[in-house]
Simulated assay, not measured.
Amino acid sequence: MTEDAVTATALTKTYPGASTPAVDRMTFSVPSGQSIGLLGPNGAGKTTLLKLVCGVSPPTSGQILVHGAAPDGAAQRDLAVVHQSGPFDMMLTVRDNLRIAAGFRGLSWRRVRTRAAALLDEFDLAGKSDDLVFTLSGGQRRRLQVVRALLRVPRLLLLDEPSAGLDVEGRRRVWDLLDDLRRTHGLTLVWTSHHMDELERNCERILVVQHGRILRDGSSEQLKDEAGQVTAELRTGSPDDWAAVAECARLTGLAPEYRGELFVLTGDDLRRRLPALIAALTERQVAIESVALTSSSLEDAFLALTRAEVSNR
């Protein structure tokens, strides 16, 4: 059985003087090789959670394990972080900053400089090695953070808003490289982002976080189905099929509506009920020309979940 990359049990962090915890009794696990996203408004506890995972902030109570051990020592050597703000010395060159980063991680510059050069080239920074970091653009510094984190391929990579300041091409380049690392090395990813499309594309699971707690844990499709509305648009050969469609829909627990050449179906568990409806219509020899599923966006689902949580407090 593969060991989980991250395991949190009743994990709590309360800062001195704070009236409420920044992380409040979170319990979850991240299997090795999985990619999960943390989605929540500012102040929800996402960054604090990452600090607990990488071991730079101790929990007030509860437990956090990284590959089965406390996040210190050997466990820290197996993870890397892309921070919201770059941990650079602005008055040193790109090369010197990478040399320092390698030293902090116990890496010999002689051994990693070839990899560093390849990563700089990958992120369009090859000609910047001798440039002082303060002369780089915001997007270039962001890409340099990713290079810094990947000087050694970690088992666990924490990404705190990795696309902030990047243009579309830069974002795609980061995504493609992370895809390649996951396929090649079985890398585990935990990242926060305000870009909904980034989490939808790259994460198998999304934890919706609010007020330090996990509101929901599931795939983007599960979250959209639960908090948003899923509809099916069914087109048949004739509007005369309405009676048959309406009857079969109700028998399968769905609500039908006729909207100008389309039968629109809604209801709980629509995805699961739809095959039974199609089978019933086929048995009645109703010619089905097309079926299209539509659902709310992840943004709609996120807003519905967080607003519902606020109203219930």
Rank of each mutant, 00 (worst) to 15 (best):
M1I: 06
A5L: 10
T9E: 10
A10L: 03
A10F: 02
T12P: 00
G17D: 03
T20D: 04
T20C: 01
T27F: 12
S32Y: 04
G33P: 06
I36K: 05
N42V: 07
G45E: 02
K46C: 06
T47W: 07
T48K: 06
K51Y: 14
V53D: 06
C54T: 10
P58W: 00
P59K: 10
A74M: 07
Q76D: 05
Q76T: 12
R77F: 05
R77Q: 14
A80S: 15
S85T: 05
F88V: 09
M90Q: 13
M91I: 01
L92P: 01
T93M: 06
V94D: 03
R95S: 13
D96S: 14
L98G: 01
L98W: 11
L107N: 13
S108V: 02
W109L: 12
R110N: 11
R111Y: 00
A118G: 10
D121I: 07
E122P: 03
D124Q: 13
D124N: 14
L125W: 13
A126I: 02
G127I: 04
D131A: 15
D131K: 11
F134H: 14
F134R: 13
F134M: 06
T135L: 08
T135R: 15
G138M: 11
G138L: 13
Q140M: 15
R142T: 01
R143M: 13
A149P: 07
P154M: 09
L157Q: 01
L157G: 04
D160T: 04
S163P: 00
A164V: 14
G165W: 09
V168G: 02
G170C: 03
R171I: 08
W175T: 08
D179A: 11
R183C: 00
H185N: 10
V190H: 02
V190T: 00
V190R: 04
V190Y: 03
H194K: 12
E198W: 04
L199A: 15
L199N: 03
R201T: 10
N202I: 00
C203W: 04
C203L: 03
G212L: 01
R213T: 04
L215H: 11
R216H: 14
S220M: 00
S220R: 01
Q222S: 12
D225Q: 13
D225W: 00
Q229E: 13
V230H: 01
L234R: 10
T236F: 09
D240R: 15
D240E: 15
D241G: 09
D241T: 05
W242N: 08
A244R: 15
V245Y: 12
V245A: 10
A246Y: 07
C248V: 07
A249W: 08
R250Y: 02
L251W: 00
A255L: 13
E257W: 00
Y258R: 12
G260P: 03
E261P: 15
L262P: 08
L262A: 14
L265E: 12
G267I: 01
D268R: 14
L270C: 05
L270D: 00
R273T: 06
P275G: 11
L277N: 12
R284A: 08
R284D: 02
E289D: 15
E289P: 10
S290D: 14
V291R: 00
L293N: 02
S297V: 08
L298F: 10
E299I: 10
D300W: 05
D300V: 05
L303Y: 12
A304C: 09
A308Q: 15
A308R: 15
E309M: 01
V310K: 14
V310A: 15
S311G: 04
